[in-house]
């Protein structure tokens, strides 16, 4: 179908977008890549009266290395991240960008839009919560930064104020000896994963010095599986410790049944993904170049 009629506003800067939002109030919605919003509007599930288009704002699409961090402009497309040599320095970020939906969607969808939407099935939040990530926001009262863990508060809910916009995503480079991997099972490329697992480890020899594990699509938000992390932290990695981490991940998951799978299956699956991601993360931590691809039906 065609979306319901709406007013279109083109912002020239993020500041102007904030002003527009504050004038339009609840009726205004931001349009970044349109990855989620446009299909929802075409199904008439979302019917905003006003759209504020960010696509013509200059200078908000970039990937920069700066003081031990990677900085992503809010409007950076998934495809730009996918093909960026800078972003590839943190391999798990490349895994994420390269596995989102299909080429057409990756060319449009943005990292900022994905984080701001906080869809429980989105990939970015899961991956970025295994890294030291902060979200820079711009509002009427100026700028602030919020750690990702405090930014997404519930399904489709963030700490953003009604007139606030995500302007930048800052990811600290992981320390030496780190490696990570992101794995999802998707029934077909364009659809959301059935479940996904992001694992970021710091290794010293065979011993895991630090671990971050996040689970996607099995709860209202990405789930930090802290018990699974504890199962690895300070341990020599073996089949037993990996199985313990996978088991802990299963316990942490809180999946709902839908067309993607039963709750029992998703719980089983997410454990399997965690285990496989751990294996890949270890190899990367050792400096191996490993190509990671999602699992497809």
């Amino acid at each position: 179908m065609y979306p319901r009629a709406f007013h279109y506003h083109r912002a020239g800067s993020l500041k102007e977008a904030v002003t527009m939002l504050s004038q339009l109030g609840e009726e205004g919605k931001l349009l970044a890549g349109g990855q989620s919003l446009i299909p929802l509007m075409k199904l008439r599930f979302a019917n905003p009266k006003h759209l504020v288009d960010l696509n013509f704002v200059p200078g908000i699409s970039y990937i920069k290395e700066d003081k031990g961090s990677l900085r992503f402009g809010a409007l950076t497309r998934h495809a730009e991240v996918e093909y960026s040599a800078t972003a590839a320095k943190i391999p798990i970020i490349h895994d994420c960008a390269a596995g989102i939906a299909d080429v057409q969607v990756r060319n449009r969808g943005t990292i900022g839009g994905s984080i701001a939407e906080a869809d429980p099935s989105g990939d970015w939040a899961t991956v970025l919560s295994t890294l030291d990530t902060t979200i820079r926001c711009l509002g009427r009262k100026g700028e602030r930064t919020i750690p990702l863990s405090k930014f997404i508060t519930d399904a489709y809910t963030t700490a953003l104020g009604p007139e606030e916009i995500v302007s930048e995503i800052i990811v600290k480079n992981p320390p030496k000896g780190s490696g990570g991997a992101y794995l999802a099972f998707k029934r077909s490329a364009p659809v959301y994963p059935t479940a996904s697992a992001a694992v970021q480890l710091r290794m010293e020899g065979d011993v895991c010095e630090d671990a971050a594990i996040a689970l996607g699509c099995v709860g209202l938000t990405a789930i930090k599986a802290s018990q699974a992390e504890s199962a690895l932290r300070g341990q020599k990695i073996s089949e037993t410790t990996m199985n313990a981490a996978a088991e802990a991940a299963r316990a942490a998951a809180d999946p709902q049944p839908d067309m993607r799978g039963s709750a029992e299956y998703k719980r089983m699956l997410v454990g399997a993904l965690v285990k496989r991601a751990i294996e890949l993360a270890i190899r990367r931590a050792r400096g191996e170049q490993v190509e990671v691809s999602h699992l497809y039906a």
Binding site: L43, D102, R187, S188, A189, P190, V191, Y192, M259, Y296, A297
Partner: peptide
Amino acid sequence: CVYDAVGNMLTSTFSDYTPITAMN
């Protein structure tokens, strides 16, 4: 094509029906 017990069709979009693509 999946229906629930009261006849709601649960696979009315490609996101749910997942037709095969070259990737698969």
